[in-house]
Design a protein around this nucleic acid. Structure first.
Lengths: 204, 204
DNA sequence: GTCTATAGAAGGATAGAC
DNA sequence: GTCTATCCTTCTATAGAC
């Protein structure tokens, strides 16, 4: 029975993940989740008391998944340029496999800013920042970079990777009008974005 | 009375704009909009038959407003570099004044992809594209750019401008942890992003 | 643990008086 | 044009049988 419990709870959680990512917290319906899981509404409330608790469980899983994808960049023993190339390849591949995650995550984050405190409390951003900076302190002298411009650089890197998926609705539509396939566009982007950033920070 | 009509309809429309941008289509409540406008629910339905019609009116206004902000870039008689600097300054200032527009627009766009056809049918993207390309055809030879990489470049430019606002919830939280003010970060970005792009596309 | 049935509340929409 | 009152549907949540 413990085995079966796990199975049902797991099925519910996966169905909830799909529906919440697709429709968002406000647009999702408990009935829809139940149907996706092949059970009835009452059982949802048996496992996760309320819609909000179910959503929180899903959201925290998604948040962990996303944050986890940034960690390797800080750990890998690579040069700055290699790290940039590594990041875009890894991250864009991750987003290809989870194309709806950015829109879902960004949206729910904006709609409920209090979540950020909780999420960031688990990660010590300041430390990671310093770690990254000290790892490449010597290298950075060869680039057009100061400690001051690091926030600009890092948000730019994330923007170049995440934005195409966050704005997929529009971008896909525009590209289509010009006969370009979105998947191909992302494939090209893995190297384009990396070289773009590297050239942007290199000394003339 | 025609004057008064206009006033009420206008008040409703503005209230609806605020509430829809804040909560999204699914999260918005007609009662909430009525309260913001200082009237009652019935009157909402008198002017805009349904919630959906009211939302569509708001959304189309927002879409026009956003698209309008991209037009000058195609018209201005400037060099490519000047255009890039012009864009980031103008566009980031626009977003400072309308900080919630990106998240709202991107989200509703993803949630209902059929909207894109309607919006893009009004704008002839292909033509604008060619226009931009032909305007700078000669110049482009001096940069690391081919016609093929134009989609990558243009989406990158938009990403660098829009993403900080689309992901404001997270970015503001991260910056705060490091003692950096979001407004100051955006102010810096107006020039940082421009120089970033220009360096990225310039020949060594 | 899982189901059916239903309570209870909320929200969109309309009728009808003024 | 604007309001109050109310209808009707939808949705979350629970009670209770099995």
């Amino acid at each position: 029975m413990a085995e079966n419990d796990k199975q049902t709870e797991e099925r519910i959680f996966e169905a909830a993940t799909d529906v919440f990512i697709e429709k968002g917290m406000d647009g999702a319906r408990m009935q829809d989740i139940a149907s996706h899981a092949g059970i009835n509404k009452a059982l949802l409330h048996y496992y996760f008391r309320t819609k909000e608790q179910l959503f929180n469980a899903v959201f925290e899983m998604v948040a962990r998944k996303i944050i986890k994808k940034f960690a390797p960049v800080f750990d890998e023993n690579l040069s700055l340029e290699a790290k940039i190339r590594f990041f875009f390849k890894e991250h864009l591949t991750f987003l290809q496999e989870n194309p709806r995650l950015p829109a879902f995550f960004l949206n729910e984050m904006n709609r409920n800013p209090s979540r950020i405190k909780k999420i960031l409390s688990g990660v010590d951003i300041d430390k990671l920042w310093l770690k990254l900076y000290s790892q490449h302190k010597e290298e950075l002298k060869n680039y057009n970079l100061t400690e001051e411009t690091m926030p600009q650089l890092l948000t730019s890197i994330v923007a170049l990777s995440v934005f195409p998926f966050a704005a997929r609705g529009i971008i896909e539509g525009v590209l289509e009008k010009m006969g370009i396939d979105f998947d191909k566009y992302i494939e090209t982007r893995k190297t384009f974005a990396a070289e773009f950033v590297i050239k942007a920070i290199s000394r003339p």
